[in-house]
Design a protein around this nucleic acid. Structure first.
Lengths: 228, 228
DNA sequence: GAGTCAACGATTTTCGAAAATCCAGACGAT
DNA sequence: ATCGTCTGGATTTTCGAAAATCGTTGACTC
């Protein structure tokens, strides 16, 4: 049984949204690439209208950008934006985790433990693995981080965190193997979980911050090497 | 032909976006109202395609909501969401203000003073005033709050704050006069500005938090009276 | 040779109608 | 009387082509 519950896109527009978003996430559409309607229509096998709606949504979320009458293109990645995202994640997810620890009940604890278990049962994705495996781990990784902050009680904060996570995800994707080499991501995740379940807010937030900092540092090194 | 004072609206879609957004802001479209394409086409004098794109953007920003095949409607207002927005504003704008105070230069100081001056030169909007006057004060009020955090150095944080401000704005609109009666908003604004310019981060953030709390309290009282 | 401008090609943006979908009410069966 | 099915009308969603716009090429002038 698959983790992906097949959300069954109810309209072509949402189908196109998920499809194009996936192409950007996986790097098939590269940062800066122009997105021509003709190509996207061919890819999604539909007319221009739903494609346009999908691009409008993607742009509102920052995955693509729009110049009037010059069309859409994939949003650029930059070192400065990576730093910006990291700082905002520390602020928002840190606060959300603190609130979750303060307000979470046994149900929340169970959710965190379950999500962590599902994540560690699957090997961490590497670049040489089939993308389906990598996608699977990514989905479980995202679910774990979501479970941590699920009890914060603020729908808006959860939305903000989700947005930031999705953007950070794009950066993480550019080099999975480099990112995780020489690190013990499992230990970092376990430390976050254990301090959270122990209701030690300060320690949990500190662990979360350290986790993000290490991720950002690895990516910065990669970016420097690339010269982009 | 000379260029009219309307440099914006480079496409019909963005024109529709601003128009519908304004109708929601001013309360002409009420929370929960269904937004039929036929009506919006008549209002904006254009076809369905740009209207659809406008609604897609508005939905991504939370002003409208979409049920597949059941159309768009104006997002509801609720006491719990108001509390949620207030909490998030305290978190995000508080941090942005702290960063601005830390990093802002003389240019930032000048911007704050200028925006404050422009705001106090115009009388606070009341319900019996023509809406053009109210809109004017609202715009200057928004500009003042933006100027305060302009030097925070984080584009993403500024975006988040702008989103939150726009939502809070909808709540403030439901009762301008009640909101400001018995309060001294001018004094609150001045205190924020003075502590910020004095580079007293803690005091400025505290003043900002108090400002938001008072706004939220006044609105809560209004909501209770309405029973909604 | 450099600069200006007009027409062209490529692409986005918009239109109006057709297709798909949902809601409400009527009808019949249990 | 209640439940479930079916149809009519209203509304969204999608299509394919037309209109508008931008960047570029090439000719033409200075």
């Amino acid at each position: 049984m698959s983790i992906l519950p097949k959300p069954a896109a109810r309209t072509l527009a949402s189908d196109a949204y998920e499809r194009i978003r996936a192409e950007i996430r996986t790097g098939r559409f590269r940062p800066g690439d122009r997105l021509r309607f003709a190509d996207l229509q061919a890819l999604c096998a539909m007319s221009v209208t739903p494609v346009r709606e999908a691009l409008a949504r993607l742009t509102a979320e920052g995955f693509t950008s729009l110049d009037d009458h010059r069309g859409y293109s994939v949003a650029q990645l930059s070192l400065s934006e990576l730093r910006d995202i990291t700082a905002n994640r520390k602020l928002c997810e840190g606060e959300a985790l603190r609130l979750s620890i303060e307000r979470g009940d046994a149900q929340w604890e169970a959710g965190v433990i379950a999500a962590h278990h599902l994540m560690v049962r699957v090997p961490q994705g590497r670049e040489d693995m089939p993308s389906a495996i990598r996608d699977d781990w990514d989905a479980r990784h995202a679910a774990f981080h979501r479970a941590l902050i699920a009890a914060c009680g603020s729908a808006i904060l959860l939305d903000t965190c989700g947005r930031l996570f999705a953007h950070a995800d794009r950066y993480r994707r550019v080099s999975v193997s480099l990112l995780m080499s020489g690190r013990d991501a499992e230990a970092e995740h376990r430390l976050i979980m254990e301090t959270a379940l122990a209701r030690d807010g300060a320690a949990a937030v500190a662990a979360l911050h350290a986790h993000y900092e290490k991720t950002a540092e690895a990516l910065e090194a990669f970016f420097d090497g690339q010269g982009s």
